[in-house]
Structures are given as C-alpha cells and as structure tokens.
Write a protein that binds this DNA or RNA. Structure first.
Lengths: 154, 154
DNA sequence: TATTGTTATACTCTATAACTATA
DNA sequence: TATAGTTATAGAGTATAACAATA
C-alpha cells in the first residue's frame, strides 16, 4: 500500500543506473575503468601503499590487486616502487598522470553534484539528506542482521 | 561553496554502493548474477522473446545474450523454445523456477523500499521524490548534451 | 613458520568478427 | 542479400590454490 516508498525506491534505482553509466563513460575518456579508478582514489587517500594493504582496504583478493595495478602501470597512472624495508613488497605510488586522473575525478564529482543538486531549495536539500541518512542507517541494520543470521563467516 | 550538494551527492553514492552490494548478495542466494537477473526481469515484462529482441532491449551484443541465456538455461530459469515461424530463432521463455526468481526479486524490491523509506514523513518523502526527479532530469540533459557534442555516433 | 606477490586456473560480463542455417 | 544465433578470440574483473622469495 505504501506506493510512495516504492516509487521513491524505483527513482533511486533509475538514478543510480543513469549516474553509473555517465560516470563510467567519463572514466573511460581518461583511460580508466571503474575498478582501476577506485584503486587510484584509494591510493590518493592513503598515499603510497603495499598491495596487501590495498587488498584489505578495498576488500578484494591480493590477486585482484595485482591485476588492477598491472593495468594502471601499463596506463602510466602508478608505479611500483621497491619497499624501503621489505624486499618482498612494493609501494604502489601515484604518478603525475595518476594525480591528474584523481584531480579529474574530483572535478567530475563536483560537476555532477552541482548539476544534479545545485538548484535544490534549502528545505528540499535538507529533507533529501535526512532521507538518505535514514536509508543508509536502515540498510546497515539490514546488512548486519543478515550477517548475524549467516554466522558472521566472512 | 555549495557543500550541501556535494554532501548529498556523496551520500547518494554511498547508498548506491551499499544497496548494490545488498541486492547482489540477495540475487546470489537465488543462484542469479546481476546480469542474468536483469535478463529475467526483462523477460518477465516482455514475455517469451527472441534473443535479438533481448539484445536490443538491454542494449548489449547478441553474443552477450547468448551467454546470459546459456547460464539461465543451465540454472533452470529459462528454456529455449523453437520459434513458431522462424526456424533460425528461439523464444526464450521463463520456467517455473524463473518465475519464482522474478517473484523474489519483486518481493525484495518491496522489502527494501519499505525498509529504507517506509518511516519517512510525508513531507520528506515528497521533497526527496522532487529531488530525485530533478536530478534525473538534469542528468538526462547532461547525457544528451554529451551525446550531441560527440556526434551522436551511438 | 608466516607473509608478499606471483603463476595457474576458472567463471562472469562484455565486445567484435567470422560463420552456419535460415529467411 | 539480410537476419538469428553460434563459434572464435579477446580483455576486464573477480576468486581460490599453489608457489616463490623474503621476513
């Protein structure tokens, strides 16, 4: 009976689909894929990092990080520097081109934020922010409840 | 300057990430991948369809449809029926299990809609819906402008 | 013995190009 | 000649398992 919630949910899904397509095609123009862009973003926040650390931060297998870093090295976005004290490890490090990539992602984020929400009234913006925060809280509750139900394995 | 729009944009991105993870893991429990679930969803809306039609509807290559249908056939979600008047073609058709899969996706959609937005005040819900619609409109404008700039090739 | 990153293998999603069977 | 779907090939993202070098 609560058609409002379902309508809102459908709009949210539609927005995420169109937004995702737009962001992905923008990345492609920089020579980046979504996964590689994510790694670049994380690297920008954490500074030069071991692949092991990246794997934990991004919650993926170390093997997967190897592949993403390979691609970023080929594209000139990062370099593998020798770790100063552990000869098994590398420090994945942003190159100048990598830093440019991060800068354009940041610019794109601002551009989209303004394009989508820049004209919103103060009241609507506050209400929408409340709705997003509320939804995130509920969603995290659901995820935790499901994890508890499944024995917390992962 | 407009920190509100950026904050809202960041919340939206976070929500899409967590929501996507939740929906994907729910699909996995039904033995479905996101892409196969999408095909199942489309099939439920359009009825038994040729793979060619599915490829156009879903904006992907016919070859890709072949692979998705293969997976769905293996999982027992659909069957390939001979086309009544064109011996080159199949009609991809939902099986009983496929219909169950669609039903649980529909239930999940309602469950999530209520969980995320069921407690929202009438005013906040209306404001959020306005914000989503406005954002979708702006986004479509951006996409069309970009397409026009790039020569409309696709 | 434990850890870092790799090779080996496999599955999914995606694409283009060439080919078969049919229209 | 054109269309429906396939095989062939390729690249990206993901995973686990086995293995090398190093700690």
């Amino acid at each position: 009976m609560d058609a409002g919630a379902e309508t809102l949910f459908d709009r949210l899904l539609e927005l995420t689909i169109v937004l995702g397509r737009d962001m992905d095609s923008e990345l492609e123009r920089s020579g980046l894929t979504p996964s590689r862009a994510h790694l670049l973003w994380v690297l920008n926040e954490s500074g030069p990092s071991m692949q092991q650390t990246l794997a934990m931060t991004m919650e993926m297998s170390p093997r997967n990080v190897t592949g993403l870093v390979d691609g970023l090295v080929d594209g000139g976005f990062v370099t593998r520097q020798p770790h100063p004290s552990d000869r098994r490890a590398f420090l994945v490090t942003l190159s100048a081109r990598g830093a440019e990539g991060v800068a354009s992602m940041q610019a794109e984020r601002r551009r989209l934020a303004m394009a989508l929400f820049g004209q919103l009234s103060k009241g609507d913006m506050a209400a929408t922010l409340r709705a997003m925060d509320e939804a995130l809280t509920r969603l995290h509750e659901l995820v935790e409840a499901a994890a508890a139900r499944n024995g917390e394995s992962s």
